[in-house]
Design a protein around this nucleic acid. Structure first.
Lengths: 339, 339
DNA sequence: TTGTATGCGTTATCAC
DNA sequence: GTGATAACGCATACAA
């Protein structure tokens, strides 16, 4: 005897019956339309009385849209929810979607099985569009998005396979170049880099910018590369650098988390920052103000990135105006005390 | 001329036509059932040919379920995605749901508007159940959950209004008591606490455990309380404590993030840890191993918490066996070098 | 084993 | 302004 777990829910039909009108009229007070004051009050009373709650599955089926947008962060799971940047992007996207009365749903991908299931979810009509962060060229999701033609915006450089899809991001190369130059201007002569996530465009671009700034003075022996934008890897990367070149007096870390780790490694090695070694980071995340000394870094307007991504998706969903293919936001250097 | 934005998608009907069978048969190969080998191959070919992708809205409507479970973290947004614990709980919940072929969708609540919309989302049938983290008694979501009778599991003590709902958590009081005792055993005589988030059960319980351990020796003047489990508040709380009682020689911080902040404040005040002051935290999150020295803390099995929460929800959805009302997991003290 | 008919709850398009 | 009615695409019970 399992029995019904929940009572049957009231439908528009029930409301119409209780109010003594037709379903059409009920729908009009629900979704706006011409309706007499009398009918309206009667219906509103009926709604309260029968405890009507709209069934969005039915609405979704009839209207062919869900008023929801998916948010996917394709980060290794260890980082997924610890990266302050992703959080800020999510919040920015959410508030823009919220304004347009769309529900943001974020989906985590932590296994192949997840990948498959999320694919079905996206193509099943649960969302009208998607925002995808940190995709790499080989991520299978990209092909899928193309196949089902889901309105999508990428955050960060679009992977090769999706060059024609809208994206929003910053100029990683230019900003990396600029902050490296600023570091050079402090008179450092042996400047190294802790490069991270070279399999992502952001990681590769930051290294490119670093090389460009150094030009002839670039020394491949002075770059340590680590797989992730992560504190622990920052520690390791800095140790490696010190090991290879004890005379290093400047370091560009690929992210603030990495820079924070580098600071720790420098402290354990007895180097003073910024006196002995100047350190700069990237992102201007919450790490930057928590280190001692606070980090000179590149400000990434993460919230704005999220907001623009959401707007690009919404505009594609509306399908009215042509969508510009990309938005590149300013990412200025902010100079503090670590260099 | 807006024009159709996307071509009409193939339906079961189209597949049936292409394969020369009925829709019923197509459905049987899709959802399992008796189908002849001939029919099956024909249908599979047809599916590929017409590019059929199931419309889950229709399926949802017909079956009255979505195979999705909502995940809500009711944290202040600044913390939402930076708290390593929440990330671990999400991952744990996701993997359990994934095994049961359910899609976890996480919803952020960052405004009243969000609250309303998420309420409609949950009650609209987009999810079959929900996992709710860090709810407080007055959170409107709780009443809503009760009203719509959505299978739900709370993570952390259930708020008063939901005493009858399943939850999973740890014994915050007991663990706080235990780690405080350990700290006392190191011979400290002036032990303070940086209490945080006293409006949440976890925060209040940790303070209670602290008081219990100290007994007669408890001195209200030695507790600084801050609103959030946050690094920056840890710095502030520790400064306040030092200010009030310079002789403080032991500190229980309500979380590892807070403890990390406390360490920073102690460093700037010239106190050595653990020589001058012993510090312990709570959570055993990634912070614990990143501080110098690494934190003695309480291990919170966040991933397991998420897993159990998911299982409790799934069991309610299945509705077969009676659901035990709560799961309390072990949270042992792990002793490192900060005290 | 396969085909058919009906229902799921809402929206939209008509006449009235 | 309002009331019927036909989609929307899938699942399922029943007939064949």
């Amino acid at each position: 005897m399992t029995g019904p777990r929940r009572a049957r829910r009231a439908t528009v039909h029930d409301v119409a019956a209780a109010a003594g009108v037709s379903r059409g009229t009920v729908n009009r007070v629900l979704n706006g339309g011409y309706v007499s004051a009398d009918a309206r009050t009667a219906i509103e009373a009926a709604i309260a009385k029968v405890g009507y709650v709209p069934n969005r599955a039915a609405s979704m089926l009839a209207r062919q849209r869900s008023q929801a947008v998916g948010f996917l962060a394709l980060e290794p799971h260890s980082l997924l929810l610890e990266d302050p940047n992703i959080g800020a992007i999510m919040l920015g996207a959410n508030s823009a979607l919220s304004l347009a009365d769309h529900q943001m749903v974020s989906l985590v991908i932590d296994s192949d099985r997840d990948m498959q299931r999320v694919g079905r979810y996206l193509s099943g009509g649960f969302v009208d569009g998607a925002i995808i962060v940190s995709a790499r060229s080989h991520d299978p999701i990209i092909r899928l998005i193309g196949e089902i033609g889901l309105p999508t915006t990428f955050v960060g450089h679009p992977p090769d396979l999706a060059r024609d899809m809208p994206y929003v991001g910053i100029d990683n190369i230019g900003s990396a170049r600029e902050i490296t130059r600023r570091l050079m201007q402090t008179g450092r002569t042996r400047i190294g880099m802790i490069a991270a996530a070279l399999d992502r465009d952001s990681g590769a671009d930051r290294l490119t910018g670093f090389k460009e700034a150094l030009g002839d003075r670039f020394d491949p022996g002075l770059v340590a590369d680590v797989p992730l934008y992560d504190y622990t890897y920052g520690v390791k990367g800095m140790r490696a650098l010190l090991d290879r070149e004890p005379a290093v007096d400047g370091v560009f870390a690929a992210s603030d988390a990495v820079a924070a780790g580098a600071l720790e490694a420098l402290r354990e090695a007895g180097r003073r920052v910024p006196e002995d070694v100047g350190v700069v980071g990237f992102d201007d995340s919450s790490w930057a103000l928590r280190t001692q000394p606070p980090l000179s870094t590149v400000h990434q307007p993460a919230r704005e990135v999220g907001r623009h991504a959401a707007e690009l998706v919404l505009r594609q969903i509306a399908g009215t105006e042509p969508v510009e293919l990309s938005v590149v936001l300013d990412s200025p250097v902010v100079w503090r005390h670590s260099a």
